[in-house]
Design a protein around this nucleic acid. Structure first.
Lengths: 137, 137
DNA sequence: GTATTGTCTACTGTTTTAGTAGAGATTAAA
DNA sequence: TTTAATCTCTACTAAAACAGTAGACAATAC
């Protein structure tokens, strides 16, 4: 499941990506154009700023802008920042592995299955960039 | 994310699949061998029974058994029964589509992306059967 | 009739989600 | 230097989902 937080984050990156190397966008502008609750969006953009994806300026003529090329922003990383690991279960995660109590890492068939699911998800999200998403028809 | 409920359900099907056409298994046996809380497992097996996957008998020599061939039990369907739709967002679901309020079905880029993710997940879970999971090395 | 086993409904504690509230810090411009 | 605009930060909260537990009841075999 993708949370609203991650969905909003991905959506917000679209106008920011389109404006890459152009003027900054206001939280309120993005909030309105993308139908995202403003106060919630504040937090999301702040997260993305703290992870090095955005920069911002307060006051008049302030706003947010992207500080990486859309071609270099992998959607899997965005989802990880906002929602955590891609894997359906932690014991199948590559980036945030943690054992589960109820099964054996070496033999658990559910884990093997979910590793394949993880790989399939990663195969989309870690290969596709913001640029790709924006230009998807 | 896969809930414990679905994880336990998948795990429980393994001994049941291995015993297909053999004797019934007790809830308590499965609970112990698979490390699943017994009362929780009761509910899960009941769900799978009500959906036509298992049959059961009360009393002495009772227990649960599979009433479909492991080769014909698709793991995607099991996950849907226990956890709901596979798609990360409802508006990208094939089996349980519902529009989301904040975006337009025709143009939403996040939806397009998540449809691809859904397909990737389905490509694993709807093609693989209980038989496959049991015989995975 | 008694022990064993599944059935069913309801309840409960915890965590996560999806925000909201509001005071504060920065900035540009008048 | 004041003011308006804008981002920042912490805390709070309501609702839903998750992960079970409890216990009475029904069915079955011996």
């Amino acid at each position: 499941m993708l949370s609203n937080k991650a969905k909003y984050g991905l959506k917000a990156l679209i106008p920011l990506g389109k404006n890459f190397d152009k003027q900054a966008l206001l939280i309120s502008e993005i909030s309105e154009s993308e139908n995202i609750p403003k106060k919630f969006l504040e937090q999301i953009l702040l997260d993305l700023k703290n992870k090095g994806y955005l920069q911002s300026k307060s006051g008049r003529n302030g706003g947010y802008w992207l500080i990486r090329k859309p071609q270099e922003i992998y959607l899997g990383d965005v989802v990880r920042i906002l929602d955590g690991p891609l894997a359906p279960v932690q014991c199948a995660s590559l980036t945030a592995y943690a054992p589960c109590q109820d099964c054996d890492v070496e033999t658990c068939k559910v884990r093997f299955l979910m590793k394949d699911v993880r790989d399939a998800i990663s195969n989309i999200l870690d290969k596709r960039t913001l640029f790709d998403m924006i230009n998807e028809k």
